[in-house]
């Protein structure tokens, strides 16, 4: 196992860890808005790291570009759906959670 493979596996494992962190955030965070934060950001970074780790193993330049294209598409889809879910929650009247001492800023 060469240096490159070790680096690749490290990147990919780090990416998977970010996915786990995103799921933990989804469970631990107190309301839908904060959960969107956790899921969107952690998963995007996780997928980015996994794609970066897989890039050297791609069999051709086109295949490498396809990996990047998938990441960019997932990035855009994630950003859009995070915004749409947050907007729908506002629409449904879900009140954002806030710490008791910040209560007056809560709407």
């Amino acid at each position: 196992m060469g240096m490159l493979e070790i680096l690749q596996l490290t990147l990919i494992t780090a990416g998977a860890c970010f996915f786990v962190v995103g799921s933990i955030g989804l469970l631990r965070f107190p309301d839908v808005y904060t959960r969107v934060h956790a899921l969107t950001k952690a998963d995007n970074l996780g997928l980015g790291l996994i794609v970066l780790g897989l890039l050297p193993g791609a069999e051709s330049l086109a295949a490498a570009c396809k990996l990047l294209l998938i990441w960019m598409l997932a990035l855009a889809a994630n950003g859009c759906s995070g915004y749409l879910i947050a907007r729908a929650a506002r629409k449904l009247g879900v009140v954002p959670w806030s710490r008791p001492e910040d209560e007056e800023e809560n709407r």
Partner: peptide
């Protein structure tokens, strides 16, 4: 809420992509 459950679509999407790529 509805919105909490809808996050699942996002989760399935991104994690599914990652699993397929790996």
């Amino acid at each position: 809420g509805f919105a909490d459950r809808m996050l699942a679509a996002q989760l399935l999407g991104t994690t599914g992509i990652a699993i397929l790529l790996v």
